[in-house]
Design a binder for these strands. Structure first.
Lengths: 346, 346
DNA sequence: TTGTAAGCGTTATCAT
DNA sequence: ATGATAACGCTTACAA
């Protein structure tokens, strides 16, 4: 409640001096500084960020629009984001799109109305493609895509190197003797860049090594764990369980694994499983699931770094064309216990 | 970038009229309204929430301070919170305390500096007790504790009815024939209200039915899944596995369950497990873990409702002493598959 | 129905 | 080292 006015009254000093003390700027006579500090203490003064923002043209607010914060992967964005925010003393506004592209758009608009200094978007579908392309043209606020990118769009992007990931994973199982893999996916209307890149690349990497590549697609939208479970069950019942499966991600993999356990199928003796994402594998299953760690913390680190560079460039009116605006983070295989070492001929 | 000034220039109307159109308030001649709307469109006008807040003394910002957003339970706060925010068109600022009470305090102060209209706190320890008690006295902004309360503190609270939960769970296993339970906990410096209430109440409910109650405490701070795993392993190795265990929560329970599977112990034939919290049980384990659903969505619903009431009362200068400021939500048992039906005598 | 003007709590610039 | 003052973009009386 207390404002500069109150501090002025109490100390007899002027607004300017108060402001200098509060901001720790300029030259203030030590005894006056003390006086102000004491008054702040006495009145329980607290800066008003709203007023500060209006006056200074920066809010120290960053926006994070994700599609579903309860999603494990997206949750992993939060902590490194917080770390960044703390270091740069800004605050985070979050909003989730919840499978609704109109909401996603509204959320972005709301962030922009909040005058965020930067906006990070984990978009959920290609429905807002046109909108995003427009933002790219009109907005001065740095906007950065996380984990997913838009083909031929100017907006900066930081995500996982899925080509590299595919290569690593295929290498990993190849070296363990596997010559045939089955990729388990769901059917999406429009495939998002990470899934597309990874899947295509998996196939290419297999071909390049003369390995067999099968694809199974399950028509579903919902919970990946349940899909994985059902997928395994139906394959087991049909007696068509492959030797080596690549569920599209760890949720899928955990479901798959659990169904195997339930049906007495041995992992990895009867079936090898390699997940993706390192969601729960180290913690949720009796055997640690072999998977790929995407290193989301590094994604956020790189994204925030890029953000700072772009922001600085724009504030100083510098050229930003020499900034590297598409960043791909290289993750690594986590060995786990669910990929068997097999005889070279299967 | 466009402001009222620009709209004034473009339309020839005055600030007041512009404001009325933007806010959808007052009486504006339809054709002028159209004119303003068109100008907004043409200029790509977007309200500046900072300026609006400063002028109107409300920010439409709500603060959420949690201890660890990657924690499953805390994640569950987000979605219903978002739903509330959307309905009341406000935005959410989040901050996490990450096991550091100084940060927790800073986060709260930061929220208050952001002039949030309401602040929801999921506190992580009793370290800031004095600070919270002070806030209770000095702050006009509604502050509500989630899931945990402070003994004899004025601050409103909405959480789980852990007395009821304990009663339900003991009833559940009693009716299945169990007469002896072992409660698995970790050792905390200062026990937080929910854990304390539940544990004490579990014991009391057992006593009341003439049931045996054992307590095992594991000295640890960290990952509950791992603790559960280790706990089960050591009990199995020592040949001291009880017939019916109550790990303190679902993480603990999942770890416990997995260790059992790994060691060939049958669940629930050899050991019955009842978790708490409904974290992952329906999705992560071959057999669904019997547990208790705390209904966090209802917690948030009640909390936000209470917030609105308090806010309204304060804004209108009404008396708030007749508001019910401690709300306990009643969850329910989820039957699952991990509690055996046994002969009455064990 | 529209216009005017004060005010919100800061920052920043320019005198002093 | 300090004070005075304009400015930020809006809301909200109140006057016209």
């Amino acid at each position: 409640m207390a404002s500069y006015k109150d501090l002025v009254k109490l100390t007899g000093l002027s607004l300017g001096t108060i402001s200098n003390v509060v901001q720790g700027k300029g030259n203030v006579k030590p005894e006056n500084k003390e006086k102000v500090l004491k008054a702040m203490e006495d009145l329980g003064y607290r800066v008003d960020y709203q007023a500060r923002s209006l006056a200074s043209d920066r809010t120290n607010l960053i926006g994070l629009v994700v599609s579903d914060i309860e999603n494990v992967a997206e949750t992993k964005f939060m902590m490194p984001m917080e770390t960044f925010a703390e270091k740069n003393n800004c605050r985070i506004i979050t909003a989730t799109s919840r499978n609704d592209s109109e909401r996603e758009k509204r959320n972005c608009e709301s962030m922009l109305s909040s005058k965020v200094d930067g906006l990070f978007i984990f978009f959920e579908s290609l429905a807002n493609e046109a909108y995003f392309r427009m933002l790219a043209k009109t907005e001065k606020t740095p906007i950065i895509f996380l984990a997913r990118y838009l083909e031929g769009c100017d907006l900066p992007y930081v995500g996982v190197d899925n080509f590299f990931a595919a290569k690593c994973m295929v290498d990993f199982v190849y070296n363990r003797g596997h010559r045939n893999i089955t990729y388990l996916d769901i059917i999406e209307g429009a495939m998002l860049s990470p899934n597309r890149d990874r899947r295509n690349s998996m196939e290419a990497e297999c071909k390049a090594r003369g390995m067999g590549f099968q694809l199974f697609e399950y028509p579903t939208q919902n919970d990946d764990v349940a899909v994985g479970y059902d997928a395994a069950e139906s394959l087991i019942r049909a007696g068509k369980l492959p030797k080596m499966v690549f569920p599209r991600d760890d949720s899928f993999a955990v479901g798959f694994y659990n169904a195997c356990i339930k049906h007495g199928v041995r992992v990895p003796e009867d079936v090898s499983i390699m997940g993706f994402g390192d969601f729960y594998s180290s913690r949720m299953t009796p055997k640690r699931i072999s998977t790929f760690d995407r290193k989301f913390d590094q994604v956020i680190e790189a994204a925030t770094e890029l953000y700072l560079k772009i922001r600085a460039a724009r504030r100083n009116g510098e050229d930003e064309s020499n900034l590297k605006k598409k960043v791909f983070i290289k993750g690594c295989v986590i060995e786990g216990e669910t990929v068997a070492i097999v005889d070279k001929k299967c």
